[in-house]
C-alpha cells in the first residue's frame, strides 16, 4: 500500500482531516467576524430570560 508522509491512506485521512477540521473552525471564525451579516439574530436579553 502506498504511503503518504509515512502513513497509510486511512491514517493520512485522519491526519489531514484533523488539520482541515481545525482550519474549518478558523474559517468559521473569519466568516463570523468579517462576512456574517449582523442584526439577523434574535435578541435575547438577560432580563427577558434569566432571573
Amino acid at each position: 500500500m502506498s504511503m503518504i508522509l509515512g502513513m497509510d491512506p486511512w491514517v493520512f485521512t485522519a491526519w489531514i482531516g484533523t488539520i482541515l477540521a481545525a482550519a474549518a473552525c478558523v474559517l468559521y471564525g473569519i466568516y463570523d467576524q468579517f462576512l456574517r451579516k449582523s442584526g439577523n439574530e434574535k435578541t435575547i436579553t438577560k432580563e427577558k430570560g434569566a432571573k
Binding site: 473552525c25 471564525g29 463570523d32
Partner: peptide
Amino acid sequence: SEKALRRAIPYGGIFILLMTFTAFS
C-alpha cells in the same frame, strides 16, 4: 452572547488541535 460562543469556535479548534493532535501524533 451567541456571538461570544461563535467566536470561541476558532480558538477552541486550535486549542484542541494543539492538545490532542499533538498528543496522538
